[in-house]
Design a protein around this nucleic acid. Structure first.
Lengths: 149, 149
DNA sequence: TAACTGTACTATTTTATATAGTACAGTTAT
DNA sequence: ATAACTGTACTATATAAAATAGTACAGTTA
């Protein structure tokens, strides 16, 4: 599920943070789902456990996940809201990009086309933007299922 | 004209590359215009000359500028094409961002609004995105003017 | 009890970025 | 010719962020 490019200029721990938020937004992992354990994911991605922990610490700081020592890390109830809270920031980013494209000679019609295309895509199609392969299996379980005991 | 934020996460040399390309796309500097000298710009921006040179070397590598040892660096004849050559790449970036915004719960109408806004902006307004102040004067001269001799 | 979980901590390595300083050759104007 | 400019090359060093390595402790689960 998770995928990482060690050669990318964006730090690995940040790639994991981003991917986690995207998976949540896309509904691939939901509230109270358990994330892979620090050690498991570190083995799966072949990176240092501390790097994973750094990602989880950041996600916890943002309120996107909550961690229960001894049990695991779980998606917050209001994770989507916490992530979506950057609407204004992202819209600013979008505007800058649009102006760049405009200056680069891309027409309004082309962008409108692109906009329509993005919105007509299904969720599954959307996610294919981020995960090119689907090889590694990861245990993501509803916390509620296991907890009633 | 050029402005740099040393605290930014994007490297200074890259900020200069980006700004130069944007100035060219916006028509603020044109083909065969002379860029500020390495040493001048380094003094003006209070950064090391080597950093400026790194920017110019990169721009040269991209074919956006050409350098004449002993004379200076000048904007290439086909600079705009060279810069705009990343249309597909930028459109891909846009699509990813759009999908993110869609997932974050931003409506089609909101994005359409943003798109219209970006395209109704004048060039001057657009540039205000990148340069907040307009203090330092920089010598940018047509090379053609000085060359006929 | 054994195997898992998150967390904390220090030390070290690696990499990209930036700086410092020097030097050389071509250009321009006086 | 001279002085002042231009780009370029080179080595060495400094700095900060990122990642690794290793160990340890406490809570949880089967």
């Amino acid at each position: 599920m998770f995928q990482v490019d060690p050669m990318s200029r964006t730090p690995v721990y940040e790639q994991i943070v981003d991917q986690t938020e995207r998976f949540i937004l896309a509904g691939i992992i939901n509230a109270n789902d358990k994330l892979p354990s620090v050690r498991n994911l570190s083995v799966e991605l072949a990176i240092n456990p501390n790097t994973i922990q750094k990602s989880y610490t950041e996600l916890d700081r943002r309120g996107v996940i909550y961690s229960v020592p001894g049990k695991g890390c779980f998606v917050s109830e209001d994770a989507v809201e916490k992530i979506g809270g950057n609407r204004r920031m992202k819209l600013e980013e979008l505007k800058k990009l649009l102006i760049e494209l405009k200056l680069a000679g891309i027409t309004y019609r082309e962008l409108e086309e692109c906009l329509k295309a993005a919105y007509s895509d299904t969720l599954v199609d959307s996610m294919s933007q981020w995960e090119k392969k689907e090889d590694a299996a990861v245990e993501i379980t509803k916390r509620g299922e296991e907890e009633q005991k």
